[in-house]
Write a protein that binds this DNA or RNA. Structure first.
Lengths: 343, 343
DNA sequence: TCAAGATGCTAATACCTATTACCGCTGGAG
DNA sequence: CTCCAGCGGTAATAGGTATTAGCATCTTGA
């Protein structure tokens, strides 16, 4: 187990010298190239492999990428810290899925520590843009700058977004959740329980995930022949005042946390949830929210989305075609906050 | 912002040809090296900069890192999954600190997620060891094989351990928590509250972090002139029997979870915590533990440890000296489980 | 007038791997 | 004896940037 004490990185050249072969031979042994007309005698191969084992040599991923344009790294780019400070973080399940799939296809994960803030906004492209260090990239975040997506597309940089994205000068590869369908299903469920006047609380615009929810809401409301209103969340008291005045009996919240606060406010007004007022949470909490209620609504298949994003990316890299835009169904949650509408 | 229609990347060579200078000159203009004796005429510099702006040229980060002999990847080796499944996972705060510091020094993180288990134990060194993919490594885990640490040292592989480690054929760079001091402080506090007979429950050996706690405990007990016993945790009933029989009034638990179980057992015997029996938790929970008690004891500066580990690693890589072994103080927690000893 | 510096740049090379083109040797067929 | 095929490799080079050593040309001073 003797190892050279030099501090220098071990290179193929070193291995070559140790075994009395050329660097080329080492490279071929490493890559087990059987398809070419290069032949290496079994005993030579063994000698080289032995030296590699002895030294713990690993090909420099950077040189590898420069020469071969591949290094089996998948980049993970997020607009938030990758290891989030908040407990039970929203992004965590995505990352689990990404890690699992990356491992299954034999790729390492390169976590880009968060992008620098330029002009008050995080940016992918900046002075020392690191995206190209990996073979391809998974992009994570509620909102991605269309201009940056467009540039990625234009440059032919292989990437996949977790979450549906609008076209940005071309179709953006993504694995998203089918928010319109999931939201519509909840609206139908509410309508079936007799709710005639329901509300959507949230942005409903900006990020695609928000717009998609509102779109599904609006379409389903129309189809069910009931009345739906849309309000932005400001503070619980104000919003609740407004909605109760309108005779709303079920509140659909874009943000779980807003729902928790609203339900709390309702409780402090002696309104029972769901007997007096129903709530539907359109997805998992993205912020910590404290509530004892088990919200009705749906769950985002986050882990699966992460997994499939890597799958799509892998296909993109291999040039094997296949659908590059996938929408996954959300899992409905019966919960305990949606009941028959009060008469 | 006219971009050449070719699919090839713009290189410094291209810029050089466009402006009638050499690639070297382009490189110098780009890097604004004023410290060298290289001089570029202002008008030449302007011409080059104009071409750069026109083409939108950005230096290829891969080539850049190849030339720099640094890839600015920091490896993270852990004995657990990197994206922990459990909520509030013990290792999480370390990772947060690691990421934050990596970002501040402009490094990305490379995850070594899948160290194979050999002979019933995870190993750093194995067949397809990827350690050298990064410039340096952060090692995370309660226990690290001294033989592997020795090999890392011998090979001159830059690394830093999170958590103090005994010498392994040489001093191991680490950023640890000062468990002896933190534990001793708690012992003194208990002694000050009149406890004359206290116990340490846990391994007290094996991992350095355990041995350090017991060492601090033993030294402080002696200094305070009180009596301390050490028992391993088997099951709550047995241990509690034993300690109560000995007249112990304060129990110091190495593992938070063991403390929770012991306190629960005490409660089921109609003993009040802390009036009848005091508890001190020597650190944060490493396993999920359910308890309503707010334990007295101390907190491990996990985030700070992660941060400083990267700091030390960075210094190691830069060859700038500095202390490579750091012990950080733990934060005492007053809590509600340590009170005046029963008369 | 000529050496000594200052000025403004370039050639060459290192970084490390992957790949292409080729080379020398041996044994068997013709 | 020659030619060729098969074997087992090697030399050279690409890939793009950073850096070191050095080369012309011009200015200055004595």
């Amino acid at each position: 187990m003797t190892v050279p004490s030099t501090n220098r990185r071990v290179t193929q050249q070193d291995i070559a010298r140790m075994t009395g072969v050329s660097q080329t031979t080492v490279s071929f042994v490493l890559n087990e190239r059987d398809d070419t007309d290069i032949r290496i005698a079994p005993e030579t191969r063994e000698r080289v492999l032995a030296a590699i084992r002895r030294t713990g040599y690993v090909a420099d991923p950077i040189a590898r990428r420069l020469a071969a344009r591949r290094n089996r790294f998948l980049g993970v780019f997020t607009y938030e810290p990758v290891f989030p400070a908040g407990l039970g973080d929203f992004y965590h399940p995505f990352l689990v899925g990404i890690e699992e799939c990356a491992e299954s296809i034999g790729c390492d994960l390169l976590l880009f520590t968060s992008a620098p803030v330029v002009d008050g906004r995080r940016r992918i492209f900046h002075q020392d843009n690191r995206l190209r260090l990996a073979d391809g990239c998974v992009l994570l975040g509620r909102w991605l700058d269309p201009a940056e997506l467009a540039r990625l597309l234009a440059e032919g940089q292989p990437f996949v977004s977790v979450g549906r994205r609008d076209d940005a000068g071309g179709p953006v590869p993504y694995v998203g959740a089918d928010y319109p369908a999931a939201t519509a299903a909840q609206v139908r469920r509410a309508a079936g329980l007799g709710h005639r006047r329901i509300a959507y609380v949230g942005e409903g615009a900006g990020a695609e995930s928000h717009a998609d929810r509102l779109r599904g809401f609006t379409a389903a409301v129309e189809e069910a022949g009931i009345t739906g209103t849309h309000v932005r969340f400001t503070d619980a008291a104000t919003v609740l005042d407004q909605l109760l005045e309108q005779g709303v009996t079920a509140i659909f919240v874009e943000e779980f946390a807003d729902g928790a606060v609203l339900a709390g406010e309702a409780g402090s007004r002696a309104l029972n949830v769901p007997e007096d007022l129903s709530f539907v949470a359109l997805g998992d909490p993205t912020r910590p929210a404290s509530t004892d209620l088990e919200f009705s609504g749906f769950r985002i298949p986050r882990r699966e989305m992460g997994w499939q994003a890597v799958e799509v990316l892998s296909a993109l890299l291999d040039g094997t075609g296949g659908e590059t835009q996938r929408l996954l169904p959300c899992e409905p949650v019966t919960g305990a906050t949606l009941a028959v509408a009060r008469a």
